[in-house]
Design a protein around this nucleic acid. Structure first.
Lengths: 195, 195
DNA sequence: GTCTATAAGCAGATAGAC
DNA sequence: GTCTATCTGCTTATAGAC
């Protein structure tokens, strides 16, 4: 099929989201203008509206894509393993995934307040589903007597916060590899909920 | 001394910072206008510039006040206590202090990227000094054989992230009191760095 | 110290030509 | 699909009257 000159829907579309991702992560949603995004993509500001109804949808779609990808990656996990194995898998996955996507993670945690109430609720629901897996692992471990956190819900929040915190300091050029970081955090997580 | 009509320097000054604190925490620095702050204080936008040279100084002073207050409160701690006692004191203090000042904490963590490079460096230096106390406690504990984290630096970051995370979910009307939350987190912290 | 008025510019979003 | 031009309204910050 012939293509109209200057028509790049399949190229420009993803580029708009990519530019928004990087710019929102670096400067914050409110501080980034549609004109900045357009400049980064290499089009005029008006052309962006062929790909998004507005700026809010740009933010929401970035967050939703991130959360849905996160859930997809946990969808086919091995639920027959022991709670200890499942907890280690979760902890290592969480660190690995978050360190691989620093921009998405940063936005997902920092820009929640810039979502409209409806969009906020949609993202929160996805987040709750992700946290539910960890809570279930801890609950199963308590039932089997291998874990003994004083409070399962608080332990869930504490473990997620601890693991996510790695994104605030980790630098690829630093003294530790991702694998080493995973191991160090896993040890702390394991001990923190142990009997 | 007679006061000029309409002159309220000693009242308006703190009110400007208070309004900025609340609005920045709620909507984000970039999303809040000087007009919004002025409206909240009850003056016209131009009058704000009697109290701050610009918007950036407003943000920086809020952050600096927060970090300096944090350090002040730790200045006269008991360094002769055991590492275990000092760690418990630090953990409980951190939670209590952060839950008492949700707006300051939120801004201090979310608005770092909106500081100028010089201001950012100044705040980071204060933050490093705060973290250094925890690192020192862990180091002393390792030397005495009561703590055994695999990596002291990572344990420092992990413990701070875990404790600070409480601000993301705690609500005063919830099922747990601050004291109970302190106790639950302290148990997890203690176990996570134990031998 | 606060006001009003204004400067100088950028914001999100849309219309219509090509 | 992208462009240019534009609408409307907002922004930070300053000047000068009171």
């Amino acid at each position: 099929m012939a293509r109209t000159a200057g028509s790049h829907s399949d190229i420009t579309g993803p580029r708009v989201l990519d530019a928004a991702l990087r710019l929102f992560a670096q400067h914050g949603f409110a501080a980034v203008s549609m004109r900045q995004i357009a400049r980064d993509v290499g089009v005029q500001a008006g052309a962006l509206y062929n790909y998004t109804p507005d700026k809010q949808a740009l933010l929401f779609n970035l967050m939703r894509r991130h959360m849905e990808d996160l859930l997809d990656q946990r969808a086919n996990r091995d639920t027959s393993a022991s709670p200890l194995e499942r907890l280690e898998d979760f902890a290592r996955f969480h660190i690995r995934y978050h360190l691989k996507r620093p921009d998405e993670v940063f936005i997902a945690y920092m820009e929640l307040r810039n979502l409209t109430p409806e969009n906020f609720e949609a993202i929160e629901e996805l987040r709750r589903r992700y946290e539910a897996e960890l809570e279930e692992i801890l609950r199963d471990g308590v039932a089997e007597g291998v874990f003994a956190p004083a409070d399962i819900r608080i332990a869930t929040m504490a473990v997620i916060a601890m693991l996510t915190g790695v994104t605030t300091w980790y630098r690829p050029a630093g003294r530790l590899s991702v694998d080493e970081v995973e191991g160090l955090y896993w040890e702390m997580v394991r001990k923190s909920v142990s009997v």
